[in-house]
Amino acid sequence: MNVFEMIVLIVLVSTLGSAIMYWIKSKHDKGIDFDELSSELGLSDSYCSKQQMKACLARIDQLEERIRVLERIATDKGTNLAHEIDNLA
Rank of each mutant, 00 (worst) to 15 (best):
M21N: 03
V69A: 09
I32T: 09
G31Q: 13
S44Y: 07
G78M: 08
V11D: 04
K27N: 08
L12T: 12
R66W: 14
L41P: 04
I67Q: 09
T75C: 05
D35W: 03
S44H: 05
V11Q: 07
I32S: 02
I73P: 04
L37V: 04
V3H: 11
E36I: 09
D35M: 00
S14N: 03
G17I: 06
K50R: 14
V8A: 14
F34Q: 00
Q51N: 08
F34W: 02
L43P: 00
M1C: 11
A55P: 00
V13I: 15
K50C: 02
D76T: 03
L16I: 11
E64H: 07
I10L: 13
I7T: 07
I60K: 12
S46G: 03
I85L: 15
L41T: 02
G78K: 06
Q62E: 14
N2D: 15
Q51H: 09
G78N: 05
S49T: 14
K27F: 14
A74R: 04
V3I: 14
E71K: 10
M21I: 10
S38W: 00
D29H: 03
L88M: 13
M21T: 10
N87F: 12
V8C: 02
Q51P: 01
S18Q: 01
M21W: 14
G17E: 05
L63D: 06
S39D: 07
M21F: 15
L16H: 02
D86E: 10
R68S: 06
C48I: 13
R59N: 08
I10A: 14
G78P: 04
E40V: 02
F34V: 00
R72V: 03
D29E: 12
A74S: 08
A19M: 12
D33L: 05
A55T: 13
R68V: 09
N80T: 13
E71S: 05
A19S: 12
Y47S: 05
Q52F: 05
S44T: 12
K25I: 11
K30R: 15
V11Y: 09
R66S: 10
A74M: 06
Q52T: 02
F34H: 01
I67A: 03
M1P: 07
I60L: 14
A58F: 11
Y22V: 04
C56I: 15
D45N: 06
K25M: 06
I7D: 01
K25N: 13
L88V: 11
S38R: 10
I60E: 09
L57A: 04
L37K: 01
N2H: 12
Y47Q: 14
L70T: 06
A58M: 08
